[in-house]
């Protein structure tokens, strides 16, 4: 086809000059925060909040220490899943395949349920949805951080899902030190909240005004 007509079409030098002039202000600014700092920030907020809530639980519930020790493998699994998800969500393409990270997130949730099936401690006197509510409540701050970090690259739904997984690891960690109920409870009331956070991240991220469109 005669696409050379488009190839040879005159560009608009005046428009380019205006664009370059408008960029001068941005060039004068110091370099923005790196994506590595974003990964560290998201994990620091997510895990820091989980750590703070764990401390509160230690002082308010004497059984927390023993429960946390029993759930150490699950806590390790959650740290690994959250770290991997944050890295895959916020790093530039080519460093860690997003599909692999999504599979790892699915395996992380499955592992959590499996580990609980091996070691259910006690039924709770609280209604089961309390876990879901506290999960969603504590994940709100990491979710905001995840969304702010996602603004710094082009819209990409799988990455936004992974950022939500990383944010949701906060509530999941707290769930492991504060709840000893059955695997069905973990799957429905913990896993459901985690999935909701990931979904919310994907839905909200698509509508955000971007700071950058870099892949």
């Amino acid at each position: 086809m005669k696409f050379d007509e488009l190839k040879d079409s005159a560009f608009d030098p005046a428009s380019l000059e205006r664009s370059l002039a408008a960029l001068e202000g941005e060039l004068a600014k110091p370099p923005p925060r790196s994506w590595r700092a974003d990964v560290a920030l998201l994990l620091a907020v997510s895990w820091g909040l989980a750590g703070a809530m764990t401390l509160v639980l230690f002082f308010t519930d004497p059984g927390t220490g023993a429960l946390a020790l029993r759930h150490l493998p699950a806590l390790g699994l959650l740290l690994g899943t959250g770290g991997l998800a944050a890295f895959a969500a916020l790093s530039p393409p080519g460093r860690l395949p997003v599909a692999a990270a999504l599979v790892a997130a699915g395996l992380g949730l499955s592992g959590l349920v499996f580990l609980r099936a091996l070691d259910t401690t006690a039924a709770s006197t609280l209604p089961p949805w309390v876990c879901t509510l506290s999960h969603l409540g504590t994940d709100a701050i990491p979710l905001v951080i995840a969304l702010l970090c996602l603004r710094r690259s082009a819209p990409h739904t799988p990455r936004a899902l992974l950022a939500g997984v990383a944010a949701g690891s906060c509530g999941a960690l707290i769930g492991e030190v504060g709840c000893g109920q059955s695997w069905q409870h973990v799957l429905l009331f913990h896993g459901g909240a985690w999935a909701l956070i990931a979904l919310a991240s994907a839905v909200i991220a698509r509508r955000l005004k971007r700071f950058s469109y870099a892949p």
């Binding site: 488009l6 560009f11 428009s15 205006r18 960029l23 941005e26 870099a214 892949p215």
Partner: peptide
């Protein structure tokens, strides 16, 4: 040229050209 073929409208082309290079500046670490 690419944006002109995608968007056609000159003002939009100028806006998105600027946004593109703004992203280059802001995301050079990527």
């Amino acid at each position: 040229r690419f944006l002109r073929s995608m968007l056609r409208e000159p003002t939009l082309v100028e806006d998105v050209t600027q946004t593109t290079f703004l992203s280059v500046v802001r995301s050079r670490d990527r």
